[in-house]
């Protein structure tokens, strides 16, 4: 399990869990569950296109996820934002299906990108994982107070000169790059669960903000490690363990209260 070829997977899983657990805390705090659900889906065709063009997967993912942020900001002004956003997302997923179909590796790639493939991590994934696994938590911690303030009392924060829209954009941007680096290992459909499951569980376990943030990151770390170990030992897909373990952590925390 700790053989040299597994080392990359362990490192990437650790970094992704740190970023996802930290971003997830703010997702729950700011009620941005919908964005956390939408951005990985928006990023999905990016991975497929990168495969088709033969460039590094991360760049395709990041471009589409950041495009998704712009799209969300733009669609928010539509008359029926929920329907419009859902349709754009579905069309993007369909586009991803087209790219994958054209690249030939259809079925395996569809599966890996939707549900994650933690054992498929290679050295090329390391630089972005390091940048984001360390950069996102640091950036979010630096913005801890403004993000919290504007989430709790947007009008008061705006009166103090904090731009709600600007903070939102910054936060969604960080969420997008986190999604981009987490998508290959957790899958487009399960990044949301890895982000939000530990954070929602932590919120049920402690009320204080900073301990909740720490707990969220710790839980995400435990889930990612356990999923990797179990996937390695049983040969079953890691997405199964990420999804069920996150939900189990959340349900356990709810029942405990």
């Amino acid at each position: 399990m700790f053989a040299p070829y597994m080392l990359d997977a362990w490192i990437v899983a650790t970094l992704v869990a740190l970023a996802a657990g930290c971003a997830g805390y703010f997702v729950v705090l700011r009620g941005a569950g919908f964005a956390a659900h939408a951005l990985p889906m928006a990023a999905f065709p990016g991975a497929a296109l990168a495969g088709l063009l033969g460039i590094a997967r991360f760049y395709g993912l990041a471009v589409f996820a950041l495009g998704g942020v712009a799209g969300l900001a733009w669609l928010k002004r539509a008359q029926r934002p929920d329907a419009a956003t859902a349709l754009v997302l579905v069309a993007l997923l369909g586009l991803g299906a087209l790219f994958l179909s054209l690249s030939g590796q259809y079925s395996n790639a569809v599966y890996a990108l939707l549900f994650g493939q933690i054992l498929g991590v290679g050295p090329a994934d390391l630089p972005p994982a390091f940048a984001i696994g360390l950069g996102v938590p640091l950036a979010l911690l630096a913005c801890f107070r403004p993000l919290t303030y504007s989430a709790i009392a947007p009008d008061l924060a705006a009166a103090r000169g904090l731009s709600g829209a600007g903070l939102d954009l910054l936060f969604l941007g960080l969420l997008a790059v986190t999604s981009a680096v987490a998508l290959p290992i957790a899958g487009a459909l399960l990044v949301f669960t890895l982000m939000v499951g530990p954070a929602a569980a932590a919120r049920h376990l402690t009320r204080a903000p900073l301990p909740a943030l720490g707990l969220s990151m710790a839980l995400a770390l435990v889930i990612a490690w356990a999923a990797l170990a179990l996937a390695y030992l049983t040969g079953l897909p890691s997405g199964f363990f990420v999804g069920t373990l996150s939900a189990a952590a959340y349900l356990a925390a709810r029942l405990k209260r």
Partner: peptide, 19 residues
């Protein structure tokens, strides 16, 4: 959030079944 997380568990099970 609760519904989303339960759905996530469902997706995890889908992953297993497809595998």
């Amino acid at each position: 959030l609760a519904a989303g997380i339960v759905l996530g568990a469902g997706m995890g099970i889908t992953a297993l079944l497809l595998y």
